[in-house]
Amino acid sequence: MKLKDIERILGAEIVAGIGLREKDIEMACGSDLMSDVLAFMKSGSLLLTGLTNPQVVRTAEMTDLGAICFVRGKKPDQETIDMAESKNIPLLTTPLPMFESCGRLYRRGLPGCSEYTE
């Protein structure tokens, strides 16, 4: 699935990395616990989260995540956006809540990190 598909499915807005809409995203995970993200998420995956602090982008940077989508209409501050731009990590924001966001992507065939096989 491409980032632009995720943008469409979630009715999301891209707030950083607008040039990366063609990026492939093969799996996703929803979490507000960065410790879990650091421990269990795989490279290249999409993180859905309700947290918008810059450490979310740092976490994504360390774990080589493909993109971050903030749920329930949350908008990151400029510092978070700047950091994401400098690390080439796309940021999206969707008005949908966490459960619906995950559900819609899963229904369209985007697997979770734990079940993804190459």
Binding site: D32, S35, V37, L38, A39, N53, Q55, T59
Partner: peptide, 12 residues
């Protein structure tokens, strides 16, 4: 509140 400190760091 910032998503850290869940007691997983050292294990990770």
């Amino acid at each position: 509140e910032l998503g850290f400190g869940a007691g997983m760091g050292l294990n990770n």
